[in-house]
Amino acid sequence: MLNKKVGLRIKQFRIKKAITQIELSKLIGISQAEISRIENSATQITLYDLEKISKALDVTIASLIN
């Protein structure tokens, strides 16, 4: 359940910042396909990737998981 919320929050913040999945993937060094899987809750996100995504989107980790 938490994973689904995190993926949705990442997508919301990414869209709000007008960043594409491809742009985000280049910023944090993972594939666009992995970004898609994270946003669609098709994979578990690591704390390391969560930290990189939060920095790229300029939000706290807490804002992504709450």
Rank of each mutant, 00 (worst) to 15 (best):
M1C: 07
M1N: 08
K5V: 05
K5T: 00
V6F: 10
G7Q: 01
I10P: 13
I10W: 02
R14K: 04
R14P: 15
K16E: 13
K16S: 09
K16V: 03
A18G: 13
I19Q: 05
T20N: 10
T20H: 06
Q21F: 11
E23Q: 13
S25P: 11
K26H: 12
K26M: 05
I28V: 15
G29D: 06
I30M: 07
S31R: 02
Q32Y: 08
E34Y: 15
E34D: 07
E34C: 06
I35R: 02
R37E: 15
R37Q: 15
E39G: 09
E39I: 04
N40V: 06
T43S: 10
T43H: 08
T43W: 02
T43V: 09
Q44F: 14
I45W: 11
T46K: 08
T46F: 12
D49T: 09
E51F: 04
E51A: 00
I53G: 03
I53N: 01
S54M: 03
S54H: 07
K55I: 08
A56L: 02
L57D: 04
D58R: 01
D58H: 10
T60F: 14
T60K: 07
T60L: 06
I61R: 05
I61E: 11
S63C: 07
S63N: 08
L64D: 05
L64M: 09
L64N: 04
N66E: 14
